[in-house]
Design a protein around this nucleic acid. Structure first.
Lengths: 215, 215
DNA sequence: GCTTTATGGGTAGTGATACTATCCATGAAG
DNA sequence: CTTCATGGATAGTATCACTACCCATAAAGC
């Protein structure tokens, strides 16, 4: 397959594919002559992954590159690769603020209580602590009060997700599934959560069911 | 409070506050003379909300403005305001693709089966359908196979969240809590989910517990 | 009163990001 | 053997979120 077909099948324009090649988001095709290259199905799959990361996850190109590099570090043990993927997918952090210390203690307490085996420097710990701290700053600390019920919910989901991902035929596919599952799973959960919120709020707060403040 | 104090208390530079004022993200202060204005605590709260939306939710300034406008449309019924907030917070959509039709049917079936009362044009429906379609395109359709378990999880969370939010003293605060809860709740769930995934994957795939492919 | 600093309001400029356009020599297709 | 596509490179563009600078005036400190 040459670049034109790759473009047609992926829906990405030829100049943009060239741009991704230059940026290292896509490995070069196999040269069959000095100015002719051949692209395989793997290129198409990789290109679709790049678009998903950029369009759906909103990752900047530079972060996409990091994620892909973590995907291609094939020599490490599986759970290390998953950790690398998680680290690459973590949202950018600004330096911790004062409130974060309290919140971080709360997070570590939760991890301990649930018996979760987490590396102490997992980036999600800082993200979580920062989020809780900001909730308090915004006067919405009660929303973070029962982390436990959130943890219950995501632990059940994680069981299913990891089991599904572990059924992939090789570690490359597992790592790829972790990226896709993390990113698109988040979007899926977010959209479902909005729907559930709309349903529940229609029931509790809607006009037909006795909003204590309305009517 | 004048702009300098607002800047110090929020951590946002004076030029940036001026920029937000120009862009309409922040209502103008009350003029006490032709070139002197007074800002209240509400400005500070609003400014912190703006920063949370930009920094944590990654919303572009123009979308933040829409969200704030949906917040300030105070005359509508509560559940309409919540719907407006959800619409403003929905991720941008590209025109639907062919695969989306199948996925959208799956979503509507789920909604029907669970008896959710959702407006048929809720933006989360399209987001969800698109996400499922992309999962299939990327060869990870199995991750979206049991939407039901995801729906179980988020429905439980939504019950708690809506109940917490409904306890706010007035509808303005409720609408504000919906924004913050939607955005920061997502971040909180995402971070917790990563931690849970790390825990489960360490157990199922880690080196000490018999990864079927390693050792 | 008088100097220094801060303020409101405006316009113009900047740096980063993600492409897009154009060019060229060469190869493939009809 | 003409026309179009390709690989490779360099330069340009649109958008976004600020940031710098300017001015006349007001507030704060002496």
């Amino acid at each position: 397959m040459r670049i034109g077909e790759l473009s047609r099948r992926s829906g990405v324009s030829v100049p943009t594919i060239k741009f991704y090649l230059r940026e290292g988001l896509l490995p070069p095709g196999e040269l069959t002559s000095p100015n002719q290259a051949d692209y395989a199905d793997g290129h198409l799959r990789r290109l679709r992954l790049v678009r998903a990361l950029i369009d759906l996850a909103g990752l900047p190109v530079a972060r996409v590159k990091e994620v892909l590099e973590s995907l291609d570090a094939g020599d490490e043990a599986l759970h290390h690769r998953i950790g690398a993927v998680h680290r690459a997918l973590a949202p950018p952090r600004q330096p911790a603020e004062s409130d974060d210390t309290r919140a971080e203690a709360q997070v570590r307490e939760l991890i301990e209580k649930r018996g979760w085996a987490i590396e102490p420097d997992a980036p999600a710990i800082a993200t979580l602590a920062e989020t809780i701290a900001v909730l308090h700053t915004l006067g919405q600390g009660d929303l973070a009060a029962d982390l436990d019920s959130y943890a219950d919910a995501v632990e059940r989901l994680a069981e299913r997700e990891v089991a599904a991902v572990a059924s992939r035929p090789d570690t490359d596919r597992i790592a790829e599934s972790v990226v896709i599952g993390t990113i698109l799973g988040e979007r899926l959960i977010t959209a479902l959560r909005l729907l559930a919120q709309e349903h529940v709020s229609a029931r509790l707060l809607g006009p037909a069911s006795g909003d204590p403040r309305a009517e």
